[in-house]
Simulated assay, not measured.
Amino acid sequence: MRAPIGNFADATPAPDCLDLLTPPVADAVRGWQGDVPAEQLVFVDTDPEVADTAAFVEHYGAELFDVSANCVVVAGRRGGETTLAACVVLSRTRVDVNGVVRKQLGSRKASFAPMDTAVQETGMEYGGITPIGLPAGWPLLVDPAVVDTEWVLIGSGRRRGKLIVPGKVFGGLPGAVVVAGLGG
């Protein structure tokens, strides 16, 4: 199979390579009920040493920068309560944690979740966290630019490999809310 974007040597429909995904991502793909068929979620095998966006696009092609997205885990706090959530923005933008995220979560304070917390709670590797397979009940804040991008390159749950997904999928994921101004 040829990847819909980029020039990757190895592209496979995600349902055909569940063993290459972390358990929560594999479970989400296995039980997929999105608006597009699960076969349109494409796994591409990539070098884990260049998983971070800057190194990735330098290695695999600068044209991927505009279609790459990041999924970050945030923690909103109010009183003694902490709410974990995920945010998805295009890589060329930054998540507005102290403004948009804080307000959306109804928190007094919001910050990026500690790496250990993000890894433990998602069951995914740091640097590969994806919105596909997040814990049930988590808010998923998505920037409209992600939804409006035809094909989006995002983590696969591991540092090795990425998923290429139609942008419209992100607005329909469990817990998803499309939030204007999320990525600034």
Rank of each mutant, 00 (worst) to 15 (best):
residue 64 L to M: 14
residue 90 L to E: 00
residue 147 V to N: 03
residue 86 A to G: 13
residue 80 G to S: 15
residue 51 A to Y: 12
residue 68 S to V: 08
residue 134 L to G: 10
residue 92 R to H: 01
residue 62 A to I: 15
residue 51 A to Q: 11
residue 73 V to P: 05
residue 100 V to I: 14
residue 68 S to W: 08
residue 143 D to L: 04
residue 44 V to A: 11
residue 70 N to P: 11
residue 94 R to H: 13
residue 58 E to N: 14
residue 129 I to R: 10
residue 99 G to D: 03
residue 54 A to S: 11
residue 161 G to K: 12
residue 47 D to Q: 06
residue 128 G to C: 13
residue 134 L to S: 10
residue 136 A to S: 15
residue 127 G to Y: 10
residue 47 D to G: 11
residue 164 I to F: 00
residue 48 P to F: 14
residue 112 F to E: 08
residue 54 A to G: 05
residue 97 V to E: 01
residue 120 Q to C: 05
residue 64 L to V: 07
residue 104 Q to E: 15
residue 72 V to R: 04
residue 140 L to R: 14
residue 148 D to A: 15
residue 161 G to S: 06
residue 69 A to K: 02
residue 57 V to F: 00
residue 123 G to A: 02
residue 122 T to Y: 03
residue 113 A to D: 11
residue 153 L to E: 12
residue 108 R to A: 03
residue 151 W to S: 10
residue 137 G to E: 01
residue 113 A to Y: 03
residue 134 L to H: 07
residue 84 L to S: 08
residue 154 I to V: 15
residue 116 D to Y: 12
residue 136 A to K: 10
residue 71 C to Y: 09
residue 160 R to E: 15
residue 153 L to W: 04
residue 59 H to Q: 14
residue 47 D to C: 06
residue 133 G to R: 13
residue 46 T to V: 12
residue 155 G to V: 14
residue 96 D to T: 08
residue 148 D to T: 05
residue 78 R to M: 10
residue 115 M to I: 14
residue 68 S to K: 02
residue 131 P to I: 09
residue 139 P to Q: 10
residue 119 V to Q: 05
residue 98 N to V: 04
residue 133 G to N: 06
residue 44 V to H: 03
residue 108 R to G: 04
residue 91 S to L: 04
residue 121 E to D: 06
residue 101 V to E: 08
residue 151 W to A: 05
residue 131 P to T: 12
residue 121 E to Q: 15
residue 85 A to S: 09
residue 111 S to Q: 07
residue 159 R to M: 15
residue 46 T to W: 02
residue 109 K to Q: 04
residue 125 E to L: 14
residue 137 G to V: 02
residue 153 L to V: 14
residue 75 A to Q: 09
residue 130 T to K: 11
residue 50 V to P: 02
residue 115 M to E: 15
residue 128 G to D: 09
residue 119 V to E: 13
residue 52 D to C: 04
residue 146 V to P: 06
residue 50 V to A: 14
residue 116 D to M: 12
residue 53 T to G: 02
residue 143 D to H: 09
residue 160 R to C: 07
residue 62 A to H: 12
residue 106 G to F: 09
residue 124 M to E: 06
residue 67 V to M: 03
residue 71 C to H: 10
residue 141 L to D: 09
residue 153 L to Q: 01
residue 46 T to L: 05
residue 132 I to N: 00
residue 62 A to G: 13
residue 130 T to P: 07
residue 125 E to W: 00
residue 49 E to W: 01
residue 145 A to P: 05
residue 107 S to Y: 00
residue 75 A to V: 13
residue 68 S to D: 01
residue 131 P to H: 08
residue 161 G to C: 09
residue 99 G to F: 15
residue 104 Q to V: 11
residue 82 T to E: 15
residue 44 V to M: 09
residue 136 A to V: 15
residue 137 G to M: 02
residue 64 L to S: 07
